[in-house]
Computed example of a mutant assay.
Amino acid sequence: MISPGLTDALGRWLDGLAAMGGAAENTRTAYRADVLSWLAFLQGHLDEGGGTNMIAAVGLSDMRAWMAHERGRGLGARSLARALSSVKGFTRYLAEREGFDPTAILSTRAPKFQKKLPRPLDPDAARAMIDTVELQSDEAWIASRDMAVVTLLYGCGLRISEALRLTGADHPLPDALLIHGKGGKERQVPVLDAARAAVSAYFALCPYDLPADGPLFRGAKGGALNPRLVAKVMERARLQLGLPSTATPHAMRHSFATHLLEAGGDLRAIQELLGHASLSTTQAYTAVDTARLLEVYSKAHPRA
């Protein structure tokens, strides 16, 4: 059993992350699960009580044994790297307060994994997706709603959670939306006329009151729209269009960024529009752009 002291310390660490705006609720839930799983393994592996002394006694071989155990139960390299990051964050916090040497844990190397590159749609497919999504419902207001949401994903580069966080106060859409993204990070996103028109059309057709303090996008029964419904309507549309399974709501955001880059957009500006904390995250789109150019080259070049 994990000691009350460690349990309390874990709670304080997570509360601190929330207070600093560095991790959303879902992220903190994942961190908590990662650390508790690690502590449970250590307790059996080291055959010690679940207190601070147990963590202070951890060596590099113990960390390797934990990683091997996690891989053995089917955890992928990407997930294991995230779990190790959670463990290191908590250990760093605890060591500063308890005064032990965390070097063995902090020096543990994360497993290497192939970063998945974004899979954008080409411009014609993105436009076709928006048009086809509108055809998936016989109810005019729902069809208009789905088109408005997907237009925001592609036209403004919003995450689905960001689009569904808009309220009645955001209508009519301004020239620039103030978006609260991951970790409480704020950014200004320019609004295209097409996105403004799509949202206005939905607003006019929606049978429910849309007060300033309530969600802008509603489900069939009037509650907040569930993001899974957006994913499902896009799935039906992509099947009709013959698009790959990667044509998801998040792919519309990827498409927004990739098409801006292809049009000569500045990488730093695109970083700001997407709300990426690190430029390295945005730089993944340069790899996509290069990969696409190489594909075109290999098909079209006379010597290819």
Rank of each mutant, 00 (worst) to 15 (best):
M1N: 08
I2E: 13
P4S: 15
D8E: 06
A9Y: 08
A9C: 12
D15I: 00
A18L: 12
A19W: 03
E25L: 09
E25M: 06
A30K: 11
Y31K: 13
W38E: 00
A40W: 04
T52M: 08
A57E: 11
V58D: 00
S61G: 10
M63I: 00
A65E: 10
E70V: 04
G72F: 05
G76T: 05
A77D: 13
L80C: 10
R82I: 00
R82M: 11
L84R: 10
S85A: 12
S86Q: 06
A95R: 08
D101Q: 08
I105Q: 00
S107Q: 07
P111V: 03
K112P: 04
K112H: 13
L121R: 08
L121Y: 03
L121H: 08
D138L: 11
W141R: 15
A148H: 15
A148C: 10
A148M: 13
T151S: 09
Y154F: 07
G155I: 06
S161I: 02
A163V: 04
G168T: 06
L173G: 06
L173Y: 03
E186Y: 13
E186P: 06
R187N: 05
V191W: 00
D193H: 11
A195K: 02
S200K: 13
A201D: 08
A201Y: 07
C206Y: 10
P207W: 07
D213S: 12
P215K: 14
P215I: 06
L216V: 04
F217S: 09
F217Y: 13
A220M: 05
L225Y: 07
V230S: 02
A231M: 03
V233P: 01
M234W: 11
A237T: 05
A237D: 11
R238E: 10
L243R: 12
T246A: 06
H250I: 02
A251V: 04
E262P: 02
E262N: 08
G264L: 03
G265R: 15
D266F: 05
L267H: 14
R268C: 02
R268F: 03
E272G: 01
A284K: 09
V288W: 06
A300L: 11
H301Q: 01
